[in-house]
């Protein structure tokens, strides 16, 4: 069925774009925190990227990507364009979430690692990330979920996608109320379980590592 296929496309675009965006944002935050004079241009670029793309509406990003890519290569799928746009946008957005998470780790934890000769990267991977992902993941997941709805915007540039399908069906003579009612319901079906999962993650991550280890050791006694 057309609507189901469009639903799959929406989910796929959001998932790929957000996961890629998250990974790139992670690298950008690391670069942004590079100390020293020689890294000044890197820091400047990283800050510009985040500040600029966070302030542009998503629709504008889509058009920019569309025209930029089209001006270089003519044969490129709209799916790719959508994923690139989502990726660019989610990179800028999650970079701030990740930075906030990293900064929630106390300076003493980082100094303890540095005093034991951990490099900046080793400190990040062994101390900062394990301590900050409980802070980072819930808002990052919430962002990705809210983005499912924004992906509808992509239909503006022609990707076969939920809302777009709806317009088509509507034009073919189906009742508007029925079609858009169905679409609203499908959006709900997609985002409700995901947001429940997000909340569950949040609660689970709120418990300390030692509590989690106990849950692992004694599953029968855990609530």
């Amino acid at each position: 069925m057309l609507l189901l296929e469009a639903m799959g496309t929406t989910l796929a675009m959001t998932a790929i774009g957000c996961v890629l965006g998250f990974l790139i944002a992670f690298v950008i935050v690391f670069l942004r925190q590079t100390p020293g004079l020689w890294a000044l241009p890197i820091r400047f670029l990283a800050i510009c990227y985040v500040e600029v793309f966070r302030r542009i509406p998503f629709l504008v990003v889509i058009y920019l990507v569309l025209f930029f890519i089209r001006s270089i290569v003519s044969e490129v799928s709209l799916f790719t364009i959508a994923v690139v746009a989502i990726c660019i946008y989610s990179t800028a957005y999650t970079a701030d979430i990740i930075r906030g998470g990293f900064e929630s780790v106390s300076r003493q934890q980082i100094e303890a690692a540095r005093a034991m000769n951990f490099s900046r990267w080793q400190t990040l991977m062994n101390v900062i990330v394990p301590q900050s992902w409980p802070v980072i993941l819930p808002p990052a997941v919430a962002f990705a979920i809210s983005f499912i709805k924004d992906t509808a915007l992509v239909s503006q540039v022609g990707v076969f996608e939920l809302t777009f399908r709806g317009k088509e069906l509507n034009n073919e003579g189906f009742s508007a109320l029925l079609v858009f009612g169905t679409i609203a319901f499908l959006y709900f079906l997609m985002s409700y379980p995901l947001s429940r999962w997000g909340r569950w993650l949040e609660q689970r991550l709120a418990s300390s590592p030692s509590q989690r280890s106990k849950q692992r050791l004694r599953p029968a006694y855990s609530p």
Binding site: Q108, Q109, A112, M116, F118, Q122, N126, S208
Partner: peptide, 24 residues
């Protein structure tokens, strides 16, 4: 050794002691 201990909160006691000699 710091006043506030500064043990890595995300690691067990054994891992706190072994991580630097092993990884670094």
């Amino acid at each position: 050794v710091f006043q506030q201990y500064n043990l890595f909160q995300n690691m067990s006691v054994l891992r706190n002691v072994t991580i630097a000699p092993v990884k670094i």
